[in-house]
């Protein structure tokens, strides 16, 4: 082989590393810009009033997003109530009955659900819950978020249980422990941290969701604790205020954005810590 062609090959090698390295670094730019904006503008508006009061009318300065914080908490709690137990049970089901037809179909459905656009879930829950109740409500918003949480919980449960060695289940069964107790008392506790990670990730996935809430929780400028009334949520508030013409509301929206991103990152961080353990 000629020397020059060897040189070209080496040059290509370095050029390639340069190009992919550059592309990777370029991605940092928008990331830094977004966080710069969030921290400088959002940081200004986060204070005690922001966290404890409800918004003022347009044009007035001050006010906070307490109603949206309550709303998001309530919506996530409602969503978790059904989707956590249902998700874990389904995850156990597909990991335990790997060969049955039904479980294959269920697995496919979980994939479909994961890919379903959130706006479609919004209009479905509108048709299923809001229209029969003829009222936007926290319940319907909870249902929509719950449906979005399901695939994440199911998948992580299935994956976690798949990693638990068969021998552990056998050790319990060999002691004469019934199957259901083996699952509930040995298998699930052993995979607990994995399942918990899934739950935290699913909450962080829905905490920032707006589209499924547009026609369900709908939003509310006032504070409410009722699950039968329209309710605000942080992402809904961001959407409404960001697209409003008022400077004061933009301020609140930046603060709310920083809050929600902080919450999501914290959840992800905790989830990662739980996995490591």
């Amino acid at each position: 082989m000629k020397k020059s062609s060897l040189k070209i090959r080496h040059a290509k090698n370095y050029l390639f590393i340069g190009i992919i390295g550059l592309c990777s670094i370029l991605l940092m730019i928008p990331l830094i810009l977004i966080f710069y904006q969030l921290i400088t503008l959002g940081g200004k508006s986060i204070n005690l009033t922001f966290l404890t009061q409800i918004p003022k009318s347009p044009g007035e300065s001050g006010g906070g997003i307490y109603n949206a914080i309550v709303g998001t908490t309530l919506l996530v709690a409602l969503a978790s109530l059904v989707s956590i137990p249902l998700g874990i049970l389904t995850g156990v089901y597909i990991s335990e009955y790997q060969n049955s037809r039904l479980s294959g179909a269920v697995r496919t459905c979980v994939d479909i659900l994961q890919g379903t656009p959130s706006i479609v879930i919004g209009i479905i829950v509108y048709t299923w819950v809001v229209r029969p109740m003829s009222q936007f409500s926290a319940i319907s918003g909870g249902v929509a978020l719950g449906i979005m949480m399901l695939p994440v919980i199911i998948k992580t449960t299935e994956e976690t249980l798949g990693l638990i060695p068969m021998s552990l289940k056998e050790a319990s069964l060999a002691l004469g422990v019934p199957y259901y107790k083996t699952i509930l008392k040995v298998v699930i506790p052993t995979g607990f941290s994995g399942i918990l990670t899934g739950i935290l990730l699913s909450i962080s996935r829905v905490a920032g969701e707006t589209a499924p809430l547009l026609f369900t929780a709908f939003g509310n400028a006032f504070l409410t604790y009722s699950i039968f009334k329209p309710i605000s949520a942080i992402p809904l508030l961001i959407f409404n205020y960001a697209t409003s013409p008022y400077e004061e509301w933009h301020q609140l929206a930046w603060g709310a954005s920083l809050l929600v991103v902080g919450m999501i990152l914290l959840l992800n961080l905790v989830a990662k810590g739980v996995t490591k353990r």
Binding site: P165, S167, L168, E170, A171, A174, L175
Partner: peptide, 17 residues
């Protein structure tokens, strides 16, 4: 039956939790 028949497996499998 399994409560009357004890079994020790080829590889140790204590419950990690």
């Amino acid at each position: 039956l399994r409560r009357k028949i004890g079994m020790v497996f080829q590889r140790p499998n204590p419950f990690p939790t």
